[in-house]
Computed example of a mutant assay.
Amino acid sequence: MEKDINDDNELERYLGNAIRDLRQKHGLTIADVAERAGISRGMLSKIENSQTATSLDTLSKLAQALGISLSTLFKGYNIPEGGAQHVKNDKGMQVVRRGTKHGHTYQLLAYDQGPTKLFEPFLISMDDASEVFPTFEHPGTEFLYMLQGKIEYRHGQQTYLLEPGDSLTFRGEVPHGPEQLVELPIRFLSITIYPTSAG
Rank of each mutant, 00 (worst) to 15 (best):
A31K: 13
A31H: 09
V33G: 02
V33A: 08
A34L: 09
A34W: 06
R36N: 05
A37G: 13
A37Q: 03
A37W: 06
S40Q: 09
S40G: 14
R41Y: 01
M43F: 15
M43Y: 08
M43T: 11
L44C: 06
L44P: 01
L44Y: 02
S45Q: 06
E48V: 02
N49I: 06
N49H: 13
N49R: 13
S50E: 09
Q51M: 07
Q51L: 10
T52C: 10
S55D: 04
S55I: 00
S55T: 15
L56W: 02
D57H: 13
D57V: 15
L59R: 09
L59A: 12
L59W: 07
S60Q: 11
K61T: 01
A63H: 03
A63D: 03
A63E: 04
Q64P: 04
Q64S: 14
A65H: 00
L66K: 08
G67Q: 08
G67S: 08
G67Y: 07
G67N: 09
G67H: 00
G67A: 10
I68T: 10
S69M: 05
S69A: 10
S71P: 06
S71F: 07
T72Y: 02
T72S: 11
L73G: 05
L73T: 07
L73C: 05
F74Q: 06
K75R: 05
G76K: 13
G76C: 03
G76W: 03
Y77R: 01
I79T: 14
I79F: 04
I79G: 02
E81S: 14
E81K: 14
E81W: 04
E81Q: 10
E81T: 11
G82H: 05
G82R: 14
G82K: 13
G83N: 15
Q85G: 03
H86L: 15
V87G: 00
V87W: 04
V87P: 02
K88F: 12
K88P: 00
D90C: 14
D90G: 15
D90L: 12
D90M: 08
K91W: 00
K91P: 00
R97C: 04
R98W: 05
T100P: 04
K101G: 08
K101A: 15
K101E: 15
K101W: 01
H102Q: 15
G103C: 12
T105Q: 13
Y106T: 07
L109N: 03
L109W: 08
A110H: 12
Y111N: 07
Y111M: 06
Q113D: 01
G114C: 07
P115D: 11
P115N: 15
P115K: 15
P115W: 11
T116N: 06
T116H: 06
K117W: 01
K117D: 09
K117A: 08
F119G: 01
F119W: 06
F119Y: 15
L123R: 09
M126D: 02
M126V: 14
D128Y: 08
D128P: 00
D128G: 05
D128K: 13
A129L: 14
S130I: 05
V132T: 10
